[in-house]
Amino acid sequence: MNKKALIGALLGSAATAAAWKLLPNEKKTLLKQRVNETATDLADWSTDYALDALDIVDAKMAETEAADRFNGFVDGVKDAKDKAKHTADRLADRLTNDDFDKETADIRRELAAASHPDDNDDPVVDDDIVIDATKDQDEKDAK
Rank of each mutant, 00 (worst) to 15 (best):
V74K: 02
A18F: 12
K28Y: 00
R90P: 00
K60G: 02
N2K: 07
L91R: 03
P123V: 00
D141I: 03
R34W: 04
H116G: 03
A142E: 15
A105T: 08
A53P: 00
L51F: 03
L10N: 02
R109I: 12
K143D: 00
K81Q: 15
D58A: 13
A17V: 14
L6F: 02
V124T: 14
N71R: 07
T47I: 15
D127C: 06
R94S: 07
S13Q: 10
D138K: 01
A133L: 14
T16G: 09
D106W: 04
L10S: 03
G8W: 05
A15P: 01
V77R: 09
K78F: 09
A59D: 13
A105I: 14
E110A: 15
T29K: 01
T16N: 07
V57I: 08
I56G: 01
A17D: 03
I107A: 14
K27A: 12
I131Y: 09
T47F: 13
R34Y: 12
S13I: 13
A59Y: 15
G76I: 01
W45C: 10
I7H: 05
A133N: 09
V77Y: 05
A17M: 10
Q33M: 06
A113L: 07
R69I: 03
V74G: 02
K32G: 01
N25I: 12
K60M: 06
K143I: 06
V77N: 10
R90T: 05
I131A: 03
D82M: 07
S115F: 01
T104M: 12
A142K: 02
L42Q: 08
V124L: 09
D48V: 03
I131G: 00
K28L: 00
D127L: 12
A88W: 04
E63R: 03
I7F: 06
A88I: 15
A112G: 09
A105D: 12
G72I: 05
A50T: 10
H116N: 11
A67K: 14
T96V: 04
P117D: 13
K4N: 11
D136R: 04
R34N: 09
L31R: 00
D136F: 06
T29E: 13
K32N: 04
A62R: 08
A133K: 02
T38S: 11
V35Q: 02
A19I: 10
F100D: 09
H86K: 14
S115Q: 11
D126N: 07
E139F: 10
N2G: 06
K32W: 01
A66F: 01
N25P: 01
A50H: 05
K4R: 15
E37R: 02
L30G: 02
E110Q: 14
K32H: 07
K21L: 10
H86C: 03
V125D: 13
K27W: 08
W20Y: 09
A19L: 09
D119V: 08
